[in-house]
């Protein structure tokens, strides 16, 4: 194919389309690896902790999330589509019985926010929130 400017643009835009596909396997497995490292490969239950995040985040640089994990000792939060999946680790003392915390995080694109809680009895719990991160039509 003759390398005209038009063709270059077509090839170039194709490359961009590939780059923007969501949740590439490589990134997802980094989070899985990190989680496996955290739990030592143990089984992870569900239902023991709650994570609240917006379904659609109006802006990826300030996404409010809330975690409640009664009975948890440690809660680790990951964002599986960020360049580095680790977001924060929360260690709770006895004076915070609901093990609740809210904060604001940065999400690079549409992805899952995953929380892994290590409970009092040594077992693990997991919760997931899928967040769509949008780019506005008119940013100004």
């Amino acid at each position: 194919m003759e390398l005209t400017r038009r063709n270059l643009l077509v090839i170039g835009s194709g490359a961009i389309a590939f780059g923007s596909l969501p949740a590439m396997p490589a990134l997802a497995s980094t989070t899985d690896e990190a989680i496996a490292k955290l739990t030592g490969g143990a089984d992870i239950g569900e239902g023991g902790l709650n994570i609240v995040a917006p379904e659609i985040a109006e802006n990826g640089n300030t996404v409010p999330i809330s975690i409640t994990a009664p009975g948890a000792v440690l809660v680790t939060v990951f964002a599986d589509g960020n360049p580095v999946p680790n977001v924060a680790t929360f260690k709770f003392g006895e004076l915070n019985p609901s093990r609740s915390v809210s904060t604001r995080i940065r999400l690079a694109k549409t992805q899952n926010v995953v929380a892994i809680a290590q409970m009092n009895d040594g077992s693990f719990q997991r919760a997931n929130a899928a967040v769509k991160v949008t780019i506005g039509g008119c940013g100004g």
Binding site: N82, A88, F92, P97, V101, T103, R106, L107
Partner: peptide
């Protein structure tokens, strides 16, 4: 609180500008 730990957070760069934390406590 009174030298007893309430919460201890490790922050990564994914925490937003002007880190904000809201949490509960029971004060005896």
């Amino acid at each position: 609180f009174n030298d007893q730990n309430l919460i201890d957070v490790i922050l990564e760069p994914a925490i937003s500008t002007n880190p904000y934390f809201k949490f509960e406590a029971i004060v005896p």
